[in-house]
């Protein structure tokens, strides 16, 4: 049986029905056709499917779409506004923190949520926030630099 759900997707209202066994990840990728969110493992271990649910980063493969009823959902597609990259997205570009790019949307969503809940995070907090997002290309150094550059102490912060 389908369940009616209502939520906002990147600020816009969405209403429709979903089957209970549809994961939030498939809902985002297939129902909403927002394919920026990736599937890397399907078991909550890699973070490639990170989206924000009411501001909290979650692995969309471990959430049912029906659970998003009444929530504010944010995906990578909502981060650039009117064609302009967010500050964090710009930092990823500037710091060459992107290689194959498959983990990138998830990492950005995890880091963006951190910057919103703690505008001046410590290096340790940055690492904690993105450590659930596996990346096989960058070795993380450039990612951490990019996130750090978006904090008030970013310019003076020491290397980890």
């Amino acid at each position: 049986m389908e369940h009616p759900i209502k939520l906002t997707v990147n600020g816009q209202a969405w209403e429709g029905s979903v089957l209970p066994d549809l994961t939030l990840l498939r809902f985002v990728r297939e129902t909403l056709a927002l394919t920026g969110t990736k599937e890397g493992c399907g078991i909550g271990e890699c973070g490639a499917c990170t989206v924000l649910l009411d501001g909290r980063p979650v692995n969309a493969c471990m959430v049912l779409a029906v659970e998003a009823d009444g929530c504010a959902l944010r995906t990578i597609e909502g981060e650039a506004k009117a064609g302009k990259l967010s500050r964090l997205q710009q930092a990823f570009v500037a710091h060459h923190a992107v290689q194959c790019g498959f983990c990138t949307p998830g990492v950005i969503m995890s880091a963006q949520a951190l910057l919103e809940r703690a505008p001046a995070p410590s290096d340790e907090a940055i690492v904690e926030a993105v450590a659930g997002n596996l990346c096989r290309c960058t070795g993380y150094a450039s990612i951490l630099k990019a996130v750090r550059s978006c904090t008030p102490h970013g310019r003076t912060g020491g290397e980890r």
Partner: peptide, 10 residues
């Protein structure tokens, strides 16, 4: 990187 904008925006 030329691919970075595509990749950071999804």
């Amino acid at each position: 990187r030329q691919d970075a904008p595509d990749k950071v925006t999804g």
